[in-house]
């Protein structure tokens, strides 16, 4: 016992510089730069402003959802219904366009449907206290199912010309409107998560929901808002995607929820909740976008790319753990 008093107690365990260098975001950034360099050597078409601009469409829509999803996962929940929310909102917007609603009306209807979907998920999870993974597996079938009931094997394609602005427009030079929205949302979600009371509440709920409740956080209300936000972001992604494709089929964005979750986890968010950062998710979005774009330039089929994404997801989580186990075994 007396020995303890002689121990030198450092006022901080690591210097800020060390911490930055060892952080997940730095590792991910190194991966992103490595992929960028490999790509520029592997294909002569890679380092071209317009090609790189096209590449951003690979991840901007998914990343918008990933920001909201990151908050949901940090709070200890998950939303697997996002791709189906895209399908349902796109169907609603297509139906509105079919009866002659103008672009602002179409977008408003889309966002409202997304909010309604998020509210439905949120009410089931917080109101009835159901596990979010099961609820959203259910609503995943339900939301897309409604699209199938409405559309069957048909498609909505009568979008007004001005609607194309969201997915096909450019702010200036090669910077697309979608990319501007991506940056905008990244900043908003970064500030909300890391600089506000709401963000601190999200972290504390993820670490200890009961503790959060006893420290005066309205856990259910915060979670409900998170599901609302996810619905809203899925609706916004739906606006962009529908505008870019110019058509709605019930199979739109099928399987995208898995790519969004992959992006969030790759970005260093703990799937069990409690930790994570928006900058991490932003870099993960670039990593995934660069991988798919680079492989695309090398004529690798999409399904083979998914092998790389899957390996990336498992490898990026497994490697630090293997490293830690090896170090523990040695000492």
């Amino acid at each position: 016992m007396t020995d303890a008093t002689h121990h030198h107690v450092p006022d901080r365990l690591t210097t800020p510089l060390q911490r930055t260098l060892k952080s997940w975001e730095t590792l991910l950034l190194a991966v992103a730069i490595a992929i960028f360099l490999v790509n520029s050597f592997a294909s002569p078409y890679f380092l071209n402003a317009w090609n790189l601009s096209d590449a951003t469409f690979n991840f901007t829509e998914k990343a918008m959802i990933a920001f909201a999803m990151a908050l949901v996962i940090i709070s200890g929940e998950i939303d697997l219904s996002v791709a189906s929310i895209i399908a349902l909102t796109s169907t609603a917007m297509g139906a509105a366009a079919e009866v002659g609603v103008g672009t602002p009306g179409i977008v408003l209807i889309g966002l409202a449907v997304g909010l309604a979907c998020g509210a439905f998920n949120g009410a089931l999870v917080t109101g009835l206290g159901l596990p979010s993974i099961v609820v959203t597996i259910g609503t995943m079938s339900l939301f897309r199912g409604i699209s199938y009931i409405v559309l069957g094997d048909q498609a909505f394609t009568n979008y007004p010309a001005s609607f194309a602005w969201f997915g096909q427009g450019y702010a200036f030079w090669v910077i697309s409107i979608e990319f501007v929205f991506f940056i905008l949302f990244a900043v908003i979600y970064g500030v909300v998560l890391h600089k506000t009371n709401f963000g601190r509440a999200v972290f504390s709920i993820g670490n200890n929901p009961v503790g959060a409740l006893f420290s005066g956080i309205r856990v259910k209300r915060v979670k409900f808002i998170l599901f609302l936000l996810t619905g809203l972001m899925a609706a916004f992604a739906s606006v962009c995607l529908t505008s870019r494709l110019g058509s709605t089929r019930p199979s739109i964005a099928f399987g995208m929820e898995l790519e969004v979750v992959t992006m969030v986890v790759l970005g260093g968010v703990n799937i069990l909740g409690g930790s994570g950062s928006i900058p991490g998710v932003v870099i993960a979005a670039f990593v995934m976008g660069l991988v798919t774009f680079g492989l695309g330039l090398l004529n690798v089929p999409g399904i083979v790319m998914s092998i790389f994404i899957g390996l990336l997801l498992i490898g990026v989580i497994a490697l630090p753990r293997v490293w830690k186990q090896l170090r523990q075994a040695r000492s």
């Binding site: 079938s141 199938y148 009931i149």
Partner: peptide, 9 residues
């Protein structure tokens, strides 16, 4: 086409 929505519900 109703099947998906029904199993979801």
């Amino acid at each position: 086409f109703w099947q998906l929505a029904i199993s979801g519900s």
